[in-house]
Nucleic acid binder design. Structure first.
Lengths: 227, 227
DNA sequence: CGATTGACGACTGTCGACAGCTTGAGCAGT
DNA sequence: ACTGCTCAAGCTGTCGACAGTCGTCAATCG
């Protein structure tokens, strides 16, 4: 979805399920910081702007609420999620919890196809990292970690990660706006591959702990400096 | 601060909300097996039966979908979630992931008040277990594990557990309908307390692994025999 | 001058209605 | 008897409208 089309709001709503389109629009607008954190969103105004009725707007907003991008107050409406340092730390702690579980499970039995797929994704990520397109780098990074979780074979775990990924995408994007990400991030995924290949569970745990720890420090420090 | 006053008052006031009432009704109906697994639910018919319009029914159904009690297909509507053995195993695997994380974290630093609160909850659970009220026993059991997660201090982790708890409640209730739960279950929570009190991380991990493993075996075996 | 109250405006919660899609029954043809 | 088609009924997706509620701000009172 080209970022330019978001500006022409009414034209953008033309193709699929209205709810999904509105949800995509809202997601992009929040990620792109076109709504300020904590800002109140009016259903009627959004509906007017997008040229649809309130029903799909309301339903899309509930969807984003379940994804943690919006919060609602009864009879007051929806507000853009404002993340403080503590919530951010909680998000990365949960992320560590999920990925550590996947890593430890894969340490025991990681199918060679899964490892190969992860290796390919790291290559894609490194290439995206060199392209200078920050948004693409973030997506490929998330895609790698999603693949890691998916390789563990637990669909419910994957669903939980996908839920969390929306919040991750939000805070990572916000930070990247003001802080350059170090180039070493993409490369550091090789350490995860090495740990998986070794089949050593404690090493896998150590690798993912370090990896997520670095990312967490990077984001939490960025937030603390900004606000 | 008496937890009862604030909790019940707020709940009572928000209960005026039609969406929440419909959600409660649907939840109880699904848990109580008044809808068959996989059964299609018609928005119009539910609205007629409950004497409300489709809007709150639709919104409540989306809420239950996000909780994993319903699934939706575009232009086809909502269906009662039917759990197979694999999904059940996935649910308990995720539960282990979350609780293991909380236990390992608490092993390092478990405030004495938190440990005391957990101890009290185990007593409540044992008493409920002896009362013969299966529904109450399940709720007190879930309450203990919720308290365990909450003690770790990560709100995002707690939210994830709360989401999962609806699915847990569903499958545990279904199993309990046909299979008597062994009395030892309530008592076995003491092992978790002992592990926490010891402050030994590997012991904590071992304790929760065993505890969730027993519960998982109990439920998965029940499902396999039933279907 | 500060606190209180009451009216105004905006918004959410809820409702009934309509169009297009899905489904299943019934009919025609083989 | 079986397969394919038609069509009617029911359903979801979406819409516009109304009523009750909340925040705001000015007028009033201590």
């Amino acid at each position: 979805m080209p970022a330019s089309s978001i500006g022409t709001t009414a034209a953008f709503i033309q193709q699929r399920n209205l709810v999904d389109q509105v949800a995509d629009y809202l997601t992009q607008a929040i990620i792109g910081q076109r709504f300020a954190p904590g800002e109140r969103l009016s259903e009627v105004q959004l509906a007017r702007d997008l040229g649809v009725s309130r029903a799909p707007v309301r339903e899309a907003a509930r969807l984003l609420e379940s994804r943690g991008l919006l919060v609602s107050q009864p009879r007051r409406g929806f507000f853009v999620r404002a993340l403080d340092a503590r919530e951010l730390a909680d998000i990365f702690d949960l992320r560590l919890c999920l990925e550590r579980h996947a890593m430890e499970q894969l340490a025991g039995s990681c199918p060679s196809e899964a490892l190969a797929a992860l290796r390919r994704q790291v290559e894609v990520l490194c290439e995206a990292s060199g392209s200078g397109d920050e948004s693409r780098r973030i997506e490929e990074d998330l895609a790698f970690h999603r693949l890691l979780i998916a390789s563990a074979g637990n669909r419910r775990l994957l669903r939980t990660f996908d839920d969390l990924a929306h919040e991750l995408r939000l805070c990572i994007t916000l930070i990247t706006k003001t802080h350059e990400a170090p180039d070493s991030i993409a490369e550091s995924h090789h350490l995860l591959l090495d740990a998986l290949a070794s089949g050593d569970a404690p090493l896998c745990r150590e690798a993912i702990d370090y990896h997520i720890g670095v990312a967490k420090d990077y984001v939490v420090r960025g937030i603390s400096e900004n606000c």
